[in-house]
Computed example of a mutant assay.
Amino acid sequence: MLSGVCGRLASALRGTRAPPSAVALRYEASTNELINEELGIAYPIIDGIPNMVPEAVRMTHQNKKQEEVEQH
């Protein structure tokens, strides 16, 4: 019974695509991190495992308001 449910689920998922609002992560080999460009954050990869807890996140850039204030 379980294998039938799993088979139907797998069939249903094969044709699905990520929604347009899905977050894209980019691997950066030089820092061994997963980068979220939209949010400006980087997740470290430790022993091959991405550490995605909020305390481990590194900011990759400042938000636009901070950048504007610093430019003036």
Rank of each mutant, 00 (worst) to 15 (best):
I35D: 07
D47T: 04
K64I: 14
M52E: 08
S21G: 08
G4N: 14
A22P: 02
E67T: 11
N32D: 14
A10W: 14
H61C: 06
T60N: 01
R26H: 13
L2K: 10
A18G: 09
L39V: 02
Q71T: 13
P20F: 00
I49D: 04
L25D: 02
I41R: 09
L25E: 04
K64P: 11
E37D: 15
R17I: 07
K64Y: 04
L39D: 12
H61N: 09
K65V: 13
A22G: 04
R58D: 02
N51K: 08
S30Y: 01
L25R: 03
Q66P: 00
P54E: 15
V53L: 10
E68Q: 13
G48T: 05
L39N: 12
E37F: 06
S11A: 14
L25W: 11
E55C: 01
A29Q: 11
C6P: 01
Q66M: 05
Q71K: 15
E28H: 06
V69R: 14
T16Y: 05
R58S: 05
Y43H: 11
I46E: 10
P20S: 12
E37Q: 11
Y27F: 15
E67V: 14
A56F: 00
G4K: 12
G40Y: 06
G40D: 05
P54G: 09
S3Q: 10
Q71W: 00
V69H: 06
E37A: 13
G7W: 14
E28V: 09
G40I: 02
H61Y: 07
T31Y: 00
A42N: 02
T31D: 09
M59W: 00
V69D: 11
L25Q: 04
I45M: 05
L9D: 07
I49C: 03
Q71A: 15
M1F: 08
E67C: 03
L9G: 06
A42M: 03
T16C: 14
V57N: 01
Q66R: 07
V69E: 13
Y27N: 08
G7M: 13
E33D: 05
H61S: 08
P50F: 01
E67L: 14
N63C: 10
I45L: 03
L34K: 02
A29L: 07
P44D: 04
A24S: 09
S3K: 11
S30N: 09
L9I: 15
T31Q: 09
K65Q: 08
L9K: 06
A29M: 03
A12I: 13
E70C: 02
S30L: 04
Y27Q: 07
V53N: 10
R8C: 13
Q66F: 00
A42E: 03
E38D: 15
D47I: 02
S3H: 12
R58V: 04
L39Q: 14
R14K: 12
P20Q: 10
E67R: 14
P54S: 15
Q62V: 03
E33C: 13
A12C: 13
H61V: 02
V57G: 02
V53H: 10
K65C: 03
R58P: 00
G48F: 11
E37K: 09
N51V: 15
I41F: 00
A29C: 04
T31V: 04
L34H: 02
H72R: 15
P44R: 06
M1R: 07
R58I: 03
N63E: 13
R26A: 11
E70M: 11
H61D: 05
Q62A: 06
G48L: 09
N32F: 00
M59C: 01
G15R: 09
P44S: 08
M52S: 07
